[in-house]
């Protein structure tokens, strides 16, 4: 499609400028500006209520913004339903609570969008799905239902489900917050591999170890604005703002 070619050629994967959002009277996002280049891994952190989840949910239209623009892969968010579907085709989202479809097997969870959105035939869709499920090391469980899988396994299937669509951007909304500690590592490993393979990733997470090792940039949000943005080395060793310092102090306790 014309759009896709244009997007591939031009600049940043995601460009957010002047973003504002209100929940009634509550100003949830205040003048947020953020640019994410293709292939970059961004970690967004901050205290709860800082607007970090709201921000990434605005990118694929799960939340609607009131002012400002978001351009994802050359397409503007919020224009119309058709554009939104196009954006969502190329943006993957991984949720805190996995949101796997419980009535479908792992394989079917992955093939649903492949057949209904990308238009693949069933055999081809299953081939692609199996490939990605093996990549997240769930190849032995493709015919299992979510209820038969552990949290970590479900989340990996959820990641595979998004990857099958061959997205240009992957959004992660606290992907390990609902997992037992033993399972966090397996999910972070998958995410690390993804980042190393060059995927553009925007992750909201509390996993600072992951941020330190994998992120190209750390974005710290508080009270609906971006307080500080820096490469992890800088951010963790010498945070410039008082609020960032306080946050880090609490976290690294």
């Amino acid at each position: 499609m014309k759009h896709e070619q244009a997007a591939a050629a031009s600049g940043p994967a995601v460009a957010i400028s002047g973003l504002n959002k209100w929940y009634g009277k509550y100003h949830a996002l205040r003048d947020v500006n953020l640019t994410v280049a293709a292939g970059e891994t961004i970690v967004i952190c901050g205290p709860s209520g800082s607007g970090k989840s709201t921000l990434i949910r605005c990118i694929n239209g799960l939340e609607q913004h009131h002012q400002g623009t978001i351009v994802a892969n050359g397409l503007t968010v919020g224009e119309d339903a058709r554009t939104m579907r196009e954006i969502r085709k190329n943006t993957g989202m991984v949720f805190q609570h996995f949101n796997l479809f419980p009535h479908l097997t792992a394989l079917q969870n992955c093939t649903l969008a492949l057949t209904r959105v990308r238009g693949y035939g069933r055999a081809e869709a299953e081939r692609i799905a199996q490939n990605f499920l093996e990549r997240v090391r769930m190849g032995d469980h493709i015919r299992k239902y979510p209820s038969q899988l552990s949290g970590g396994q479900q989340q990996r299937v959820a990641i595979a489900r998004s990857l099958c669509m061959k997205p240009r951007i992957m959004l992660f909304d606290e992907p390990t917050s609902a997992l037992d500690p033993e399972m966090i590592k397996e999910v972070l490993d998958v995410m690390r591999t993804l980042a190393q393979d060059g995927m553009t990733m925007i992750c909201v997470t509390h996993e600072m170890g992951f941020a330190r090792e994998v992120a190209d940039r750390v974005v710290f949000m508080d009270g609906g604005t971006i307080v500080e943005e820096a490469p992890p080395a800088e951010f963790f060793s010498a945070p410039r703002h008082e609020r960032s310092q306080r946050f880090l102090a609490q976290l690294l306790h």
């Binding site: 969502r88 989202m93 959105v117 959820a158």
Partner: peptide, 17 residues
């Protein structure tokens, strides 16, 4: 759960699907 609709939307599924 609302998350189901959100996951389906995020995958780009149209409303009828």
């Amino acid at each position: 759960p609302r998350g189901q609709t959100e996951a389906a939307q995020s995958l780009g599924l149209r409303w009828t699907d």
